[in-house]
Amino acid sequence: MGSIWQLQILHDCCHNTFSPSPKINNFVLQSFGAISYYGYAVYLKHGHLSHHSIGGSVSPRSAFNDAVDFLPDGDVLFNGHRSNMKGDSPRLPSMGKPLLFREDRTAHNALVYALTFSFERIFLGLNDFFTSIIRKNLFFPNASPSLSSSLVRMSTFGTLARLALASYLGPRIILSLYLAELSWCIPPNPLAGCFLNNHASQPDSGGGCEPTMSYKTGNKLYSALVLNTNHHKEHHDFPSVPFHGLGRIKEMGGYGDLDKGGEGGGRQGMELWFGRGGTYGCQ
């Protein structure tokens, strides 16, 4: 539970909605973000705002290989094992189309997702460690000098923070951090629903495409437990509203209608997603 709260607080820091002070937001993002198995701060600082501005227009190949000063559409890096993607990836063959997914094989797809997600998290943590050792993030070989330097610096800080925790609390703390991040993201945990569906785009009522979805359970306790992470459509429409205001946006803006935030919620929503899947960002 603490991991999803941590991510949502850091996410607000990225949008400068956690505190009126950008300096405080940046400090909390980089310091609090280091106390995790995978360094959330790296993605949020360099790839999340671009996800809001150009989400769905970048292929995995471009995201990994372009020579830029930021990570273009950072969410591309994390959706390949659960969504159809634009183009393919030079490094991860599962990108382009979810690896081993089968149409209408709900249980099979849920198991594939859980296994690939578990592997992804392990690998991301190891990548942070190796980046701090070799002083280069191999996932982004063409990153600009400023981006490359920042990636190395943040990975090093995160690695040192985790080593400090391990030396003080014992090495099991690393496993605990990993399991904390993993547990709420995979089924059968119902909290996984708000993460799975957030960018599985679906047709909207006007015949177009809705690139973001809100995970609707009709249960205010669920929204409270995930700090309104499930109100993802509302967040994309109003990114300057902090997480604690998204529920009010939902009530004021008519987001209770299915055509405003995608289909389904609760168990029905997860079964829909694992049975049919989705395409990231209307690509």
Rank of each mutant, 00 (worst) to 15 (best):
S240M: 07
K23L: 14
Y113S: 01
G264C: 07
K220P: 00
H235P: 07
K136A: 10
C209V: 08
L151F: 07
L7Y: 12
Y37H: 14
R61D: 02
V42H: 01
Y222K: 05
L246G: 04
L227A: 14
H51R: 03
G39Y: 06
Q202E: 14
L163F: 11
L225W: 03
N16S: 11
I35M: 11
D257Q: 15
G275K: 06
I134E: 02
G96E: 03
D204Y: 10
F123Y: 15
F129A: 10
H199Y: 12
F18L: 13
G262F: 00
H231N: 14
M85K: 02
E271R: 10
R105E: 15
F129V: 15
W5L: 13
R91W: 09
F139A: 10
F119V: 15
S148Q: 15
G158T: 06
L49M: 14
A110I: 08
S62M: 10
G253N: 07
L29W: 07
D128Q: 12
P203L: 13
S31R: 15
L126C: 12
D259N: 13
G262L: 00
P211C: 12
L160W: 15
M95F: 14
F123A: 15
H236M: 12
G275M: 05
A63D: 01
L10G: 00
D66E: 14
L246Q: 05
L77W: 01
S94K: 12
G56T: 08
Y168D: 09
A161I: 06
S57H: 13
I35Y: 06
S83E: 08
G47T: 06
K260P: 07
L99E: 09
Y38C: 10
F70R: 07
W184N: 05
F123I: 15
R121T: 15
K45G: 00
E120Q: 12
P187N: 06
P145F: 05
S183L: 12
E210T: 01
P22L: 13
D66Y: 01
P171R: 02
S144E: 04
A180W: 02
S19V: 03
C194Q: 13
T156I: 05
G247L: 09
Q202P: 00
F274C: 05
G261A: 11
L111S: 08
A63M: 04
G261N: 03
R105Q: 15
Y255M: 13
G254P: 09
G265N: 05
V112E: 09
S146G: 02
L126M: 15
S83Y: 11
E120N: 10
V28P: 04
P211Y: 04
D66C: 05
L165Y: 04
S57C: 11
L165S: 05
G158V: 03
Y255Q: 08
E210K: 05
L138N: 11
D259L: 04
S50K: 08
A200S: 13
M154R: 05
G55A: 06
S201D: 02
Y38A: 10
F140E: 00
Y215V: 00
